[in-house]
Design a protein around this nucleic acid. Structure first.
Length: 265
DNA sequence: AACAACTCCAACCGCTATTCG
DNA sequence: CCGAATAGCGGTTGGAGTTGT
């Protein structure tokens, strides 16, 4: 319904719904050349049939350099809990304490993982002892990230100035039932091409979702599939605004993380 | 195998704040 | 100072993936 603009009543003035690979390429390419500016003008100038607001959101939340993809780490979880206790639903302020995380992501995390599961939260609080302050927690982040991403264990363990902490992922609580981790994406259908049945175009934003390791832990990277698809269309799409070589220089700078092998495809 | 239920999260909406002429 | 335009924020929605029955 609402999201994918569709063509109800003829050609829509502006596109809505999930961003396609081509649109991402155009947006990144344009901003790399001209920088951010008035979003409405930017959308027009870049030839994107989107409103400025949509472009801004897409850029800030997903395409902007430094945006982290992947699971919230235990330390980040602790920061979020603490800051939310102090600040309330001030997502942008909370996000400011978590480099690379966006307000939208934190908001979603809070609503889906914490707020919706009060019982689970209580269990988690038993399961781990959070550092006393957000700053202390932030200081602990480096350690915890290593712990959580490199291990296939179901619990993470780390330490901070405030002491040791343990974190048990919600899906590992027997009482909680299954937590459906989003692993593989069925990109086959999406890759079928533009206008293949309602789904708007080739790969969309959903397909660039974080690749996951076998243990279900998200890896901080675009999926290999998305990366290669981006590569394959970049040359054509980018011609509109910038040559492909400089575009990829920009991309390389933006996402310093090399693409990880994606075993899910 | 088919369906239902559940979960996640990208993106939209509406409102407020800020900037600019 | 005022009004319009733009940017930013928080709440909400709905599509799609995963798991259970």
């Amino acid at each position: 319904m609402g999201r994918t603009s569709g063509r109800a009543g003829g050609e829509p003035a502006v596109r809505k719904g999930p961003w396609t690979l081509e649109e991402d390429v155009v947006l990144v390419g344009y901003i790399s050349q001209h920088g951010e500016g008035s979003w409405d003008n930017l959308a027009r100038a870049a030839g994107l049939n989107r409103n400025g607001k949509s472009c801004r959101l897409r850029w800030l939340n997903y395409l902007r350099p430094g945006v982290r993809r992947g699971s919230i780490t235990p330390a980040e979880d602790a920061v979020i809990r603490e800051l939310h206790a102090n600040l309330g639903n001030k997502w942008s302020k909370i996000a400011a304490h978590l480099p690379g995380r966006t307000d939208n992501e934190i908001k979603n995390y809070w609503r889906t993982r914490i707020q919706r599961r009060p019982a689970a939260s209580a269990q988690q609080q038993q399961a781990y002892r959070a550092p006393a302050t957000a700053t202390a927690t932030a200081a602990a982040m480096a350690t915890s990230e290593g712990a959580s991403s490199s291990s296939s264990a179901t619990a993470s363990h780390g330490s901070s100035a405030a002491g040791e902490w343990w974190y048990v992922e919600p899906n590992n609580h027997p009482e909680q039932g299954a937590h459906h981790s989003r692993k593989s994406k069925n990109v086959a259908a999406a890759a079928a091409g533009p206008d293949s049945g309602g789904a708007s175009s080739a790969l969309t934003s959903r397909d660039m979702g974080p690749a996951t390791a076998g243990d279900g832990h998200m890896q901080t990277s675009y999926s290999d599939r998305y990366y290669s698809e981006l590569s394959s269309v970049a040359a054509d799409a980018v011609k509109m605004v910038v040559d492909a070589d400089s575009f990829w220089n920009v991309v390389d700078n933006f996402w310093e993380i090399p693409p990880v092998p994606d075993a899910t495809f």
